[in-house]
Design a protein around this nucleic acid. Sequence first.
DNA 1: GTAGGGACTTGGTTCAACATTA
DNA 2: TAATGTTGAACCAAGTCCCTAC
Length: 602
Amino acid sequence: MLYRGCRILLTLSAGTRWAPRVWPQLRGVCMASTRASPAVFRWEEEHYEDGMKWKFLEHRGPYFAPPYEPLPDDVSFYYDGKPVKLSPGAEEVATFYGKMLDHEYTTKEAFQKNFFADWREQMTNEERKLIKHLHKCEFSEIHKYFFEKNEARKALPKEEKQKLKEETNKIQEEYGYCILDGHREKIGNFKIEPPGLFRGRGDHPKMGMLKLRIMPEDVIINCSKESKVPDPPPGHKWKEVRCDNTVTWLASWTENIQSSIKYIMLNPSSKLKGEKDWQKYETARRLKGVVSDIRAQYRVDWKSREMKKRQRAVALYFIDKLALRAGNEKEEGETADTVGCCSLRVEHIQLYPELDGQQYVVEFDFLGKDSIRYYNKVPVEKEVFKNLKLFMENKNPEDDLFDRLNTSILNKHLQDLMDGLTAKVFRTYNASITLQNQLKELTNGEDNVAAKILSYNRANRAVALLCNHQRAPPKTFEKSMQNLQTKIDAKEQQLKEAKKELKSAKAEHKARKSEKSKKEMEKKKKQVARIEEQLMKLKLQATDKEENKQIALGTSKLNYLDPRITVAWCKKYGVPIEKIYNKTQREKFAWAIDMTSENFEF
DNA sequence: GTAGGGACTTGGTTCAACATTA
DNA sequence: TAATGTTGAACCAAGTCCCTAC
């Protein structure tokens, strides 16, 4: 077994390029390949005790949001038609609302109500006495001011923009990296979230509430004892400086909306995150080995005498077959009303003994994570159908479907079936195995690269569909589809003409049989072939786009698909990895790109 | 078993940068 | 060169799962 922290020393031999960046526990698997890397890394012999994530951690602390800049005098807020100069605190909150005026949020009652209540808390006594109704408030000048400011920024001359960019880069350089066990690692989110109005998704009861400004006094710093503790901004102090090497965060604070903790953590390209990711897929691969036993077991459990067991078995069947999320309980009234498998309610499913020629159909209709609708009609086994009927007996629509089950019970059971198994592993496993199977099915080795990429995207799409990863169709979708069609039409016309020219060149050659006429004919032939290829590329592009309209591929690519499947596929079929993974994705999956051969099997 | 806190992953939207077209 | 379309990165909300205290 490979282990953390074994020594790796890479040297360059003549003829090789830079050695690959290698993580300790990947030793032996990845030595074969090389890839461009800015440096040769040497990992010292490190022994990490149980639960220890690092030995040395040093960083600059978080980057704070810029302070509030008051509005210029010629920009006014109006109440009941009269201009009112607000106190800085109240004015800042007013600008949060004013900026959002053209957003749908501000039309929602809950948003308005929450905003107004929190805004009034920031007002002075006099302001509170005066400003009593939101509908008498006029933010349009504020809105206009920020809109124009934004436009002006966009219209800045090149040099000015360049200057701004350099400043951003400087901040990134200074705050965006840390030193972890001797290596400079990129931080994911080094900026503290600026104050604003909370934008909860779906029907969130807290939307519009004021997200307070975070001060250094709210922030806990985590770094090692031997490191230089980051300086708080002048005149300020940290809430606490601690040294906890059993966690991976560099800084944290508690936000005021849900009083949950927010963290500053490393970028996915870091060793720490990469190792965890790799581990995740290894767990999913272990599930592959036992999944048939587990499936056999839950089928048996459908007939158990214990109601609890039956519910557990049916829920697990859904999680396995439909890739549903676990479905933790949520505090009522604190968040949008969304559910996952274990928290499904009677009202979320409909049973049809027969539907559209199929038997035992279950219709799911509920809001899942991020209030994304899950709608699906699924034929199920007779036993499942009977059980569901039983679970629903004598219940109200708003009652829990699985009243004897929760995620903790389910996960405890799964832990007994396989070490490290939890509900979400099924999603990872089913997503990855689907990709692998679809790629096998859809890829044609004879195809050109463009067609292979379409096949890949189709396989990716099958996974996104399984996981219900949706997106709002892009605003420009119809138009860009039209543009593409125009291009296709033009290309077809071009092809028609080229074919005509070829035909006459052929006739010409038949008549003359000269070297020159032959050359001319060959030239036309090549031209036709070229245009045909271009046309096919465009058509593939159009198909791809159409099929992608409402489906988001990114989430599965980033979180569910074992990158080694993709890397192996690229190698096997000669598709450059850059065609599938962009720069960020290649950085995140560097471990997989390094270690995977074309023979990899998930 | 259950409530609540804590750490970490997953997720869609928005914004900015880049590429292409008019 | 400006306008427009496309892609990638940033953002931060919303999940999962684990642990502890009762």
